[in-house]
């Protein structure tokens, strides 16, 4: 979180040596993961069981994953597709039960979905029959927000993501980027302490994607939520995060602090040599984790 660039990155290099699990205290020292907004994942495993014909196949999506996220920290999880990133997110959201291990948010074990966590998915999943504002209103209804408060809050957050002119539009009339803004507004409107984002910009074109990153930086600096952000874009992870967890084949293979100054803007960061250095390091780490693919 400091403005200075350290010349040598110790964490990157030690991780590159192949430390299998990571439990670094995170980029925000002195803030416990047990405080409101903190995330603690301990020994998390998830095995999927599938029956095809006579064959029962067990696939380990997560194998003994542990990490913590401090309150108000922005942490990205990066890795190739199928490495278990989304499984972590689904378990944290309470949509999926783990096979073993524990998951705590604000020091409390996760038992099903709850309004302390706001989810943004790759496909925003807006109801095509409802207007932008009504899509947020119904999410608030599901989250148990009192009726008289729903509309006011929905409008407030639709304004926050810059869609004030599109409140009465239907999702079908919006571009992909604008639909995802609604998805973000909806997640923020339940006023969670933690924002869980699963490749939220993965389906957007490159231009919308960079614009949404800037937008998310702005919103995050305004709202200061804890964010767990899942992505497969190295650039995106570096631009946005305080810390990046590299995943491969169900384990975390590296934990990389991103020591770039805040407040950030993509534009400034991309002309910073430190940014490029971090991106190169991450690329190397991801390539490294790929080499460990087990013989199937």
């Amino acid at each position: 979180m400091t403005g200075e660039h350290s010349p040598v990155q110790v964490a990157v290099d030690s991780a590159a040596m192949g430390s299998a699990s990571a439990s670094s205290p995170g980029g925000v020292p002195g803030r416990s993961a047990a405080l409101p907004g903190g995330i603690e994942v301990t020994g998390l495993s998830k095995t999927y069981r599938r029956v095809v014909g006579r064959e029962i196949s067990l696939t380990a999506a997560l194998a003994d994953v542990s990490f913590t996220v401090a309150p108000q920290e922005f942490v990205s999880v990066i890795g190739p597709s199928g490495c278990g990133k989304s499984t972590i997110m689904k378990i944290l959201a309470g949509l999926l039960d783990p096979s073993s291990g524990s998951v705590k948010v604000s020091g409390k074990p996760v038992e099903g979905p709850g309004p302390d966590r706001g989810c943004v998915f790759q496909f925003p999943g807006l109801m095509p029959w409802k207007t932008v504002v009504d899509n947020v209103v119904i999410a608030l209804e599901f989250a148990g927000v009192p009726k008289r408060e729903r509309r006011r809050r929905a409008e407030e957050y639709v304004d926050l993501v810059g869609l004030d002119e599109f409140k009465r539009h239907h999702p079908g009339e919006l571009s992909g980027g604008m639909q995802q803004r609604v998805g973000i507004a909806r997640a923020l409107a339940i006023e969670p302490v933690v924002l869980l984002m699963d490749e939220p910009f993965g389906a957007l074109d490159a231009l919308s994607r960079t614009r949404m990153q800037d937008e998310l930086l702005r919103i995050w600096e305004q709202t200061k939520k804890t964010v767990l952000f899942i992505t497969h874009s190295i650039e995106e992870a570096v631009v946005l995060s305080d810390r990046v967890l590299v995943m491969g084949n169900g384990v975390i293979t590296a934990d990389v602090p991103i020591d770039l100054p805040r407040p950030r803007s993509r534009h400034r960061l991309l002309s910073d040599p430190r940014t490029l250095e971090l991106m190169r390091d991450l690329e190397r780490l991801i390539g490294h984790s790929d080499d460990h693919e087990p013989e199937a």
């Binding site: 309470g94 949509l95 979905p113 998915f121 999943g125 109801m127 999410a139 209804e141």
Partner: peptide
């Protein structure tokens, strides 16, 4: 019905009855 819709509703805390009535049936 687009499988994402019930999942999103559930993630916001919708009950099974709510998902059925307000999402699946309308969709």
């Amino acid at each position: 019905v687009d499988a994402v819709l019930p999942q999103v509703a559930r993630s916001f805390g919708a009950s099974r009855a709510q998902v059925f009535r307000k999402v699946t049936c309308v969709a």
